[in-house]
Design a protein around this nucleic acid. Structure first.
Lengths: 162, 162
DNA sequence: GGCATAACCGACCGCTCTTGTAGGATTTAG
DNA sequence: CTAAATCCTACAAGAGCGGTCGGTTATGCC
């Protein structure tokens, strides 16, 4: 499995927030019930999203969470990275701030790291898929803003990223 | 981390086999020494590769392993899948023999699975990167057939799979 | 026939990460 | 004041990872 349920649950949480038409915050328990996910676990996940600046929270009664930005401006690479930690195909892979890819086995002996070419391509494929998807797309795909499933038939062709 | 060291070690093992110019088998201990990897662990990995029909073995003295096919005909999606198990971005994702993607949350209630679009794209990105890379490319990248690193400068442009 | 080599096989083990649960502290609307 | 919510920390069962170990079988060579 490439990703754990942290990404799955967290993304669903974000989609649920994006489905809200008004700017009123939604409580976690509402999300938990809508998606049938354990509330206490969602608390951990939403904490990561908050620390990454993706959602804002208001405490106290009638409090809850909101998207920190419009869904159109949120790309999924940021979301998944906030939930799962830095996305690298392999332990030895580290991305520098400038976007360069390093491998710890780089110059450990006689010949260049044989696998670097492969993992670089995989990394590129995943990053491209994640960064090329916005939260707004997923909200749309899930049936648009809340109020019931207005349209059950898919609008965007599935797998159009291929 | 997307993949564990099983994929890393296993691919390096395959590259090492691919570097051998002659058809003579190489012992695992030779590979272990060349790549500085634990021999006993490699045994487990090579067992998976053998069961997947990627390498052949000859037992007894002067025995060892060989590629079951020329490196040009071995794509990395098969190798990685043999090592890591089926490649799916998420637990609920299952690929049918016909290549269709299923999600266990598909019709569990009111609206379509919100994350399916995302994971489908990720799946596509990874599969494309892996299936579009042959073992021969990695062997070439690692410095070609054994006998020393004939060329240190990279020949193929890194990231050309984008 | 012995012996060294090397593939094969399964059991075991410490560790970390995952997937939560539990309990409490704090903030806020009504 | 109270209920509703976020927030925070600690704990825990389970699984997978990375690796070790001991033993069995098969084979080439002297």
């Amino acid at each position: 499995m490439l990703f754990s349920t942290k990404a799955e649950y967290g993304v669903r949480l974000m989609v649920e927030l994006g489905r809200q038409p008004s700017a009123a915050p939604i409580s976690l328990s509402a999300v938990a019930e809508a998606e049938r996910l354990p509330l206490s676990y969602l608390e951990h996940l939403v904490a990561r999203l908050r620390k990454a600046g993706l959602v804002t929270s208001t405490r106290g009664a009638h409090g809850g969470y909101r998207l920190a930005k419009p869904a159109e401006e949120i790309t999924l690479d940021v979301v998944v990275e906030a939930l799962e930690g830095q996305i690298a195909p392999m332990e030895c892979f580290h991305e520098t701030p400038e976007g360069k890819v390093l491998c710890s086995h780089e110059s450990d002996g006689d010949h260049a790291c044989a696998t670097k070419l492969l993992w670089t391509r995989v990394q590129g494929g995943v990053t491209k898929a994640l960064a090329g998807t916005t939260l707004a797309e997923l909200v749309e795909f899930a049936g648009g803003p809340a109020g019931g499933p207005a349209e059950t038939e898919p609008r965007a062709p599935v797998g159009s990223a291929a």
